[in-house]
């Protein structure tokens, strides 16, 4: 296969790995985007847990929610083992705590603040040997950046440094119903190495979760829309039967 050359970071989510021809190309920074309730957090947590189980140290940076709450939510999943957290194979970080320590408790970041934040994240990834990183969400960080240039600088700089460290990164992007394209600010989607779009679809009265790989640098992939099922054994993907369905916006 043409793209078999690049090392893959297996998501551990059966359907998704086959869509991606083996997984996310290692070192990529990808955007998982969608409106609320589409399963972004669950999907990315599963990505981390599978990584941790395979011996890749994984880290989840939470911007808006306390990490303890997240653990409570994850306990319902069969694949989750609290030992992963106790043994520090899966590390949860509350970004608000880091904001306080770095004097970033403010509404608007300067370029200097952005660089300090990036260096801090990179420092943690480097020193703890993190191989998989999720930032939930990039939108709430970008909210404090004052211009598209700053957002661009932030994601590019972060993506480059993490890629150099061989860390595969998922940035979660919150999508408002009103936003066009695949990201809130329009900049994120252009810079990311990949975009996975998660949405809602109505079919004969049911609201289905859908997942679609829009782009992924470094691999060929299907661009078809799949149905996503959140089950106790994890995320399941199934081909979408198109009859009688309509997009929910």
């Amino acid at each position: 296969m043409a793209d078999s050359g690049r090392d893959r970071c297996k998501t551990g989510i059966a359907g998704l790995d086959s869509i991606l021809n083996g997984g996310i190309p290692r070192g990529n920074t990808i955007l998982i985007t969608g409106s609320c309730g589409t399963g972004k957090t669950t999907l990315s947590l599963e990505f981390l847990v599978h990584g941790a189980l395979m011996g890749e140290r994984s880290m989840y940076i939470s911007v808006t929610e306390a990490p303890e709450k997240l653990v409570d939510n994850m306990i319902t999943y069969d694949f989750f083992d609290k030992k992963l957290i106790n043994e520090k194979k899966l590390i949860l970080v509350d970004l608000q705590e880091i904001y306080v320590k770095l004097g970033l408790e403010k509404l608007e970041f300067t370029l200097e603040d952005v660089n300090i934040l990036v260096s801090q994240i990179v420092k943690i990834v480097k020193e703890l040997g993190i191989k998989r990183l999720v930032i939930d969400s990039i939108t709430s960080i970008c909210y404090r950046l004052t211009s598209k240039e700053e957002i661009r600088e932030f994601i590019l700089h972060l993506g480059k440094e993490l890629s150099d460290l061989g860390c595969t990164t998922i940035l979660i992007s919150e999508l408002l119903h009103s936003s066009e394209g695949y990201s809130q600010y329009g900049v994120e989607e252009a810079i990311a190495d990949g975009i996975i779009f998660m949405g809602n679809l109505e079919r004969r009265g049911d609201l289905l979760r859908t997942i679609q790989v829009i782009k992924m640098r470094g691999t060929t992939h299907s661009r078809a829309k799949y149905v996503l099922d959140l089950t106790p054994i994890g995320v399941l993907l199934a081909p979408l039967l198109k009859g009688g369905s309509s997009e929910v916006t």
Binding site: V100, K101, L102, K123, I124, E127
Partner: peptide, 23 residues
């Protein structure tokens, strides 16, 4: 506090202090 913040901003937060409560 500001002294500690400026130290953190210059040198980064040491990994062992990341998980200590900020305040």
């Amino acid at each position: 506090k500001e002294l500690i913040i400026s130290k953190y901003r210059e040198e980064g937060i040491p990994v062992n202090e990341i998980f200590a409560p900020a305040r």
